[in-house]
Nucleic acid binder design. Structure first.
Lengths: 128, 128
DNA sequence: GCTTAACTTTAACTTAACTTTAACTTTGGA
DNA sequence: TCCAAAGTTAAAGTTAAGTTAAAGTTAAGC
């Protein structure tokens, strides 16, 4: 069982963000790495995966607090029936939101494709 | 030919943003409505469409300046060949970016779907 | 053991994207 | 014609998401 771990700067350069950003996410409660005897942060593969998730979320315009909410929910292991049902509802809600975003993304793509076509047509005419 | 127009507050409430935001976008050069004799802003259907585009872009984490760049490019009518070619390149670049975003969106959706499945399974077990 | 690179915290600073406020003007209805 | 509602600008204030700086601590290679 290999237990790969990372220092803050390793992880930062791999994910192409600054160490300060990683510390900032920790301050905001999005991540919570172990520490060495000397108090330096050590990141596990799971921590790395979580950071990747954070960055992915950010690229979609989710705010850190939204991401925080999603992570908290993802990592909960609800045992009680009522809580389980609430979690289920939450995931369904988020899935719907994502579906809507996908539709909008398709609209933007359509706009851009049309633009591109227009440019191509005009270039063609220039060549005649 | 009906030439529907809007006041700032009409448009704001329709798009569910504040009038100040609309003014702010104008200040940033994203939109440029006509004015009445008395200097009040009047928005055309095209202005409304553009605002929608701005909001759509924002929902995808594009910054206002990126959106501004895209809009400026969309509204340019380049006649020169070289410029046309640049515009074409630009649109292709943006389309690639969008494709990548779509992939990431699919990853997030997958994560969420898995979560949802887990909750369903656990609920099932509880009922046995 | 020493040096130096990498780490630590705390606090101030920065930027984008708005929002709020203040002081004033225009518009639409009784 | 007058008044309230809606609009105007300019400037200051706010919030999120970092970045930078200062001052000190730990770890790694010689």
């Amino acid at each position: 069982m290999k237990k790969k771990i990372y220092s803050i700067s390793e992880l930062a350069s791999e994910l192409e963000i600054s160490p300060s950003s990683i510390r900032f996410y920790e301050e905001k409660g999005l991540i919570d790495p172990e520490r060495t005897k000397g108090n330096q942060r050590i990141y596990s593969i799971r921590d790395r995966a979580r950071l990747k998730l954070i960055l992915r979320g950010k690229r979609f315009g989710f705010s850190l607090s939204e991401i925080s909410e999603m992570i908290g929910f993802a990592n909960s292991e609800p045992e009680e029936k009522h809580q389980l049902e609430r979690s289920l509802e939450y995931s369904e809600k988020k899935l719907k939101e994502l579906a809507q975003r996908r539709e909008e993304l398709e609209l933007i793509e359509k706009d851009l494709l049309e633009m591109k076509e227009k440019f191509i047509q005009r270039l063609k005419k220039l060549k005649e």
